[in-house]
Design a binder for these strands. Sequence first.
DNA 1: GCAATCGTACTCGGATAGTTGCTGTCCGAGTATTTGAGG
DNA 2: CCTCAAATACTCGGACAGCAACTATCCGAGTACGATTGC
Lengths: 153, 153
Amino acid sequence: MSEGVEWALHSCVNLAWVGGPVPAARLAGVYDLPPAYLNKQLQALVRAGILASVPGPRGGFRLERDPAEISLLDVVVALEGPQDAFRCTSILGRGPGGDPTVDYRDHCAISLSMRRAELAWRRELAARTVADVRRDVERTSPDAPQRVRTALT
Amino acid sequence: MSEGVEWALHSCVNLAWVGGPVPAARLAGVYDLPPAYLNKQLQALVRAGILASVPGPRGGFRLERDPAEISLLDVVVALEGPQDAFRCTSILGRGPGGDPTVDYRDHCAISLSMRRAELAWRRELAARTVADVRRDVERTSPDAPQRVRTALT
DNA sequence: GCAATCGTACTCGGATAGTTGCTGTCCGAGTATTTGAGG
DNA sequence: CCTCAAATACTCGGACAGCAACTATCCGAGTACGATTGC
């Protein structure tokens, strides 16, 4: 999985602590990340409708939706794409008694088992939102929000 | 995820239908796969203790353990490695109020959420064995074992 | 003094190289079989 | 006919290219702010 997922998730939580738009360069400065590359990841989140971008001075990125409506799965899918990690290429169609024209993703027992596992993974990620993470962090270290706001201002 | 995982899983199920060792070239011929590359994947399964290799004429690969003792997770881990797909690089340690010497994999709320999801994925894969898949296939298409044995002999 | 206009600085956005890991291939080490000769 | 040994063919195993994707960077389009000039 791309390393940008980690950066994007932390940036979303940080953005949930400030109101207005924050430039990508400042978001990157918090963790000493490559500014232009983080910008690229945030662009993908904009295309997915998670963030909104504001050009020009006083511009930057801000959350487009309520943090409680942004699941971790949304962020992962925005960056990694909707396809599963395990890709069934229907090799059964090239085997004995197989039909090359059939899509075996819904028939192959192996494909179904792998899909069931990925479904469990997606279910866990879909059940956890940016708001949940923010709440957990605020409970663990109550002074984190203020520190982040200071670093982002 | 590597495409070789699919090949390895199908090959393990096929090996569960025959007794003796089968050369990699013949296993690859069933689905028209690159023989040498499949050989590479099977070598990894040997290193993991899932398969056993027999050199020389009449040699090949055979299952080292009972099919009921080989989970899908075992095969995936043997090929992809034990590390998680989401890798926490502890960027919190480079942020405000962070300690660069601390490993945040057990403290960062984001890392914990991602790990919980991967744990659910691993649990599903660990609960499903090669024997389970073989049984499912035999129920769906009872003549598959004979077809595979013919293709492998 | 006030307003309109021009210039400037700052931001995102997409286009452009570098690097790692997956994909595919090839040849050598080792072994069981086969073949031949010798007893 | 039986035994032994050498040749042979077949297998795995690791070392060697090719390619796609991730990583990283740079420059241009567009915008808001501020300075400047004219009224």
